[in-house]
Amino acid sequence: MEPAGLLGDLAIFTRVVMARSVSAAALQLGAAKSSVSSRIAALERLVGARLLIRSRHGVQPTPAGERLAAAGRNLIADAEALLTEIRAGEDQITGTLRVTCAVGVADILLVPMLASFLRQHPALSVDVVATDLILDPRREGIDVSFRFGWLRRPEQGFVARRIGTYEGALVASPAYLATAGGEPTTPAALAQHTWIGSPAFGGMRQPLTLWDASGRRHKTVMTCRIRTTAPTQQREWVLSGLGITRLPRFFIADDLAKGALVRVLSDHRFEGPSLFAVYAREHAHSARVRALLTHIQRIGAEEKMARAAESLEATR
């Protein structure tokens, strides 16, 4: 339970607004529902205005409640950052950082980053929610959401920071190509094949833009037989010989090396997926979030330098 006092009541109120439920907020806080309700009522008496509208679908903030919740989040973030610096010094990050990421692909990239971050900050804890669902960060109390794919724009009130972009590949199993009459040789021929898609590209009919070796752009539309949110499932479906799909190359490098998968239209390229860190604007003030983003940026810069060195060495 949050401590008593105005800041504690604000923290409880913002938790209720994020959860859209008094019961859910009480569960997250480890407090009785009646206690949370009484703290909210006390805050409404202090403010002199109604802050929440209750219905059978949960609770919604009033306009006054929305303003107070936004101000409360900023005050709490500033207070947490200040307390962290006072208690542990600027070089010591404490508390719990709650993050979410997709199962499978993002794990390969994210876990090493978090591991090195935790080694640098031994007083910090990380709570990871691994899911292929897109969670509401405020409702679930998420500090940073790591999203892998093709994010066009973040939700209102959120910031999306691109961590890195990765080469993608169109792939199929040799067994599928044998039964489908061979590898397609043009983007137009590709559209006649069975497609394993992702909701990141729309519904069951998904646009695909390719550039050939001369730089010419080709647009085609693929019709999904299978559509899944999980890249791990895309890999399993394509290994099972059920169609063609696009996946980050690092994710299927072993399958390509073993010949379990082969590249399709390998002389064409398309926009590869990226890993993004998405966080609410008010969390930009959090010392934990700032430290994590700085750490990831440093790793990204080191990786770019390493790739540049490898490219330079290859040309000698």
Results as ranks from 00 to 15, higher is better:
Glu282Phe: 15
Lys258Arg: 15
Asp255Asn: 11
His283Cys: 08
Ser274Arg: 03
Ser266Gly: 06
Arg263Ile: 00
Lys258Met: 11
Val264Ile: 15
Asp255Pro: 06
Arg246Lys: 12
Gly272Phe: 08
His268Lys: 10
Ser266Cys: 08
Phe251Asp: 05
Ser274Tyr: 03
Phe276Pro: 00
Arg263His: 01
Ala277Tyr: 07
His268Cys: 14
Ser274Trp: 02
Gly272Leu: 07
Val264Asn: 06
Leu265Phe: 10
Phe276Asn: 09
Phe270Tyr: 14
Val278Gly: 09
Pro273Glu: 08
Ser266Glu: 15
Asp254Leu: 03
Val262Ile: 15
Gly259Arg: 13
Pro273His: 05
Arg249Tyr: 01
Ala253Pro: 01
Pro248Glu: 05
Gly272Gln: 03
Ser266Gln: 14
Phe270Gln: 09
Ala253Val: 07
Pro273Leu: 06
Ala253Gly: 02
Gly259Tyr: 12
Phe270Ala: 08
Thr245Asn: 05
Ala277Arg: 02
His268Thr: 11
Ala277Glu: 04
Arg249Cys: 00
Arg269Asp: 12
Glu271Thr: 14
Pro248Ala: 13
Gly259Asp: 12
Thr245Glu: 03
Val262Lys: 11
Asp255Val: 01
Leu247Lys: 01
Asp255His: 07
Val278Asp: 04
Tyr279Pro: 07
Pro248His: 08
Gly259Cys: 12
Ala257Ile: 05
Ala257Lys: 13
His283Ser: 12
Ile252Asp: 03
Leu275Thr: 03
Asp254His: 10
Leu265Asp: 10
Leu265Arg: 10
Glu282Met: 06
Arg246Cys: 12
Leu261Met: 08
Tyr279Trp: 08
Pro248Arg: 02
Ala284Asp: 12
